[in-house]
């Protein structure tokens, strides 16, 4: 980010903001913190969220849950695909931001952005297929249909990976919303800018406001109230992976209302996160409940013959 374009014109710097309930507020606390690139050069000021921002984001996510979980899986797939389309159109901006944030060459950053777009398309395809994989008709010893179908857990707090600022982010957020959950995302603490820009993509991609909420700031500060929040149903601790003590504290706090907890890599999850690999369905099933219903078949057996 240079201050001028060489022709004497000052470039217009962007004010990065949070994304809560489909709107772009500043932090309620009014705080910001400096974000630097891989070489410690100043890039921008990002909002430093407080616990009240986290609370507001949960309220927004809860409000959006009914509509999003009730939308058809096919429709959710369309919306996710739309995010990929929008991201493709703004790829240049994201290549620049990822290159700055992660210290990558332009070519490598471009590969990361492309992988992120492909990841969204991949999860878009999964929205109406996951039910066939993890649900099904169960054989039972009686005149019943016994059907299991996956249902979203609810509001999920997602601590995005600290290192992979875009591909890692997309890889943890997309599976949560693909299955009908709504998300409160805590962006990477030191590399939040791609996440904050991604929220602009989400806002223009038919994603209903509140389905994804993005907060930036100190991960430990924002994660603690989210983990203890009684109206959050699940928490993905990926972003707390570098701090075993923090991850443990968060898991203990989350136990109070029986949140589903997805542990970070190396602490019950896979040994390490490689975001370029095929993600499998692990992250989708982590935040799904299985609902099983019994339904009479109508066949009443021998004694029912007279009916």
């Amino acid at each position: 980010m240079s201050d001028s374009d060489g022709k004497g014109r000052l470039t217009v710097l962007k004010t990065y903001k949070l994304y809560v309930g489909g709107k772009f507020p500043r932090s309620e606390s009014g705080r910001v913190y400096e974000v630097t690139d891989a070489k410690s050069r100043w890039l921008a000021n990002a909002p430093r969220s407080s616990r009240k921002d986290a609370r507001d984001a949960v309220v927004a996510a809860r409000k959006a849950f009914g509509g999003w979980s009730g939308a058809t899986a096919y429709n959710r797939g369309q919306v996710l695909y739309r995010i990929a389309e929008m991201l493709e159109g703004r790829a240049d901006q994201f290549v620049r931001e990822v290159a700055d944030a992660e210290g990558l060459s332009r070519a490598k950053a471009a590969a990361v952005v492309e992988a992120s777009i492909d990841r969204l398309v991949w999860y878009a395809g999964w929205t109406d297929k996951i039910a066939q994989v993890v649900g099904g008709a169960n054989p039972v010893a009686g005149p019943y249909f016994n059907l299991s179908s996956p249902e979203p857990t609810g509001v999920v707090a997602v601590l995005a990976p600290q290192q992979s600022s875009l591909l890692g982010l997309v890889s943890v957020v997309a599976p949560v919303v693909a299955t009908g959950n709504t998300a409160v995302v805590v962006a990477s603490e030191t590399r939040p800018l791609p996440a904050l820009s991604l929220s602009e993509v989400l806002a223009t991609s038919d994603v209903p406001g509140g389905v994804v909420n993005v907060l930036s700031g100190r991960t430990a500060e924002i994660a603690a109230p989210l983990a203890a929040h009684q109206d959050v149903n699940g928490i993905d601790l990926t972003g707390a992976g570098g701090d075993a003590a923090l991850a443990k504290d968060l898991e203990v706090a989350a136990a109070d209302n029986l949140k589903r907890v997805l542990r970070p890599s190396g602490q019950g999850g896979p040994a390490a996160d490689d975001w370029t690999q095929d993600p499998g369905t692990r992250r989708m099933t982590a935040f799904l409940e299985t609902k099983t219903v019994w339904h009479p078949t109508g066949a009443l057996g021998v004694s029912g013959g007279s009916y």
């Binding site: 616990r51 609370r55 949960v58 809860r62 109230p225 203890a228 929040h229 009684q230 109206d231 109070d256």
Partner: peptide, 14 residues
């Protein structure tokens, strides 16, 4: 009130 008592944010389920 529950938040002040327990230190945790409460929710509509409660």
């Amino acid at each position: 009130r529950q938040k002040l008592r327990t230190g945790r944010y409460s929710g509509p389920d409660y």
